[in-house]
């Protein structure tokens, strides 16, 4: 009970919000917009899972928004030059992994703090992309949207894909050696080393994995519309990190559960649309979003305090 208190308090806040919506604005649950909304959040979920694993290993990655944008633009350019879907898929995931490896090499190889390294790569990649692309949209071939499926089929495929990744990662992080290594390294790198693990290789691996996930997420975002916006992914890092932390992942490493992250992503994804449905003026959006994030963690903080007293 105590162990999952953060996850629980966030789930309660989410349930309350959903309940309010069911009573006050049932249109919130109309199937078409709901499906669209969930499909839109599928890439965010994947990125949030990735960053949660990075945080479990006691690192952080704030360059994911930039990697996401770069991979999206590359996917668009490759698709435009006639590459088949599967080849672009491979290329984008590899590109993401390579960029992640760059972060990982600097963090694990030179032992630099990850927040600084990824802060630097975030601006370098974003400004470089702006310089090169100058904000111009990239048109995709028609057959690309929804992987060539119908719209509804494509949206279900996206959501299913993201959920499968979530489930596999959630299971793997608990039951596979590789996943448990992350927790070991994140809890105490020195102890992990003495236990025979190689913390630096694990750190490198988690960054590579994060990059690959960001690339995959970019692809899942690109197929949802016929044009690629090179600015997409701006602020994605904050959204993903907020979802992970709200969902109970500890910034200090070694703690966190991907199902909690799932709840966090859902909560953050619901706030904005909910305000639209409740006809709240947009001026309040940011303030309410901030207040709900604070509320979700304050709940948890108060409970912990009571527990320790």
């Amino acid at each position: 009970m105590q162990k999952y208190s953060r996850e629980l308090s966030v789930a309660i806040v989410l349930a309350l919000l959903l309940l309010v919506m069911a009573v006050a604005a049932p249109a919130f649950y109309d199937p078409q917009p709901l499906l669209s909304r969930l499909a839109r959040e599928a890439p965010t979920l994947i990125v949030a899972c990735g960053v949660a694993l990075v945080m479990v290993a006691r690192e952080i990655d704030i360059s994911i928004g930039s990697i996401f944008a770069l991979c999206g633009v590359c996917a668009g350019l490759l698709a435009g030059s006639g590459w088949p879907l599967i080849a672009v898929f491979g290329a984008v995931v590899v590109l993401g992994a390579v960029l992640g490896a760059m972060n990982g090499a600097l963090v694990a190889g030179l032992r630099l703090p990850s927040i600084v390294v990824t802060l630097a790569t975030m601006v370098i990649l974003r400004e470089g992309l702006r310089w090169k692309q100058q904000g111009a949209f990239i048109n995709l071939p028609d057959a690309w949207q929804w992987f060539g499926l119908s719209q509804r089929g494509g949206q279900w495929a996206l959501i299913a894909g993201a959920l499968i990744i979530l489930a596999v990662l959630a299971w793997a992080s608990r039951h596979l050696a590789g996943g448990r290594f992350l927790y070991a390294v994140g809890s105490n790198a020195e102890a992990a080393r003495l236990a025979g693990l190689r913390p630096r290789w694990i750190t490198l691996a988690v960054f590579v994995f994060m990059g690959a996930l960001a690339g995959l997420a970019a692809l899942l975002n690109v197929v949802q519309s016929p044009q690629v916006d090179p600015k997409s992914g701006t602020g994605l890092e904050l959204k993903a990190i907020a979802a992970a932390v709200v969902g109970g992942v500890a910034v200090s490493g070694g703690r966190g559960n991907l199902w909690g992250v799932f709840v966090g992503v859902l909560l953050l994804a619901c706030i904005n649309p909910a305000l639209t449905y409740l006809h709240v003026e947009a001026y309040w959006e940011k303030a309410i979003q901030g207040a709900i994030i604070l509320l979700a963690v304050i709940f948890d903080g108060l409970r912990n305090r009571r527990a320790t007293n």
């Binding site: 207040a291 604070l294 304050i298 912990n304």
Partner: peptide, 11 residues
């Protein structure tokens, strides 16, 4: 409340 600074100030 001993909440992580990152998430509090993000809020």
């Amino acid at each position: 409340l001993r909440l992580p600074a990152l998430i509090v100030t993000l809020g």
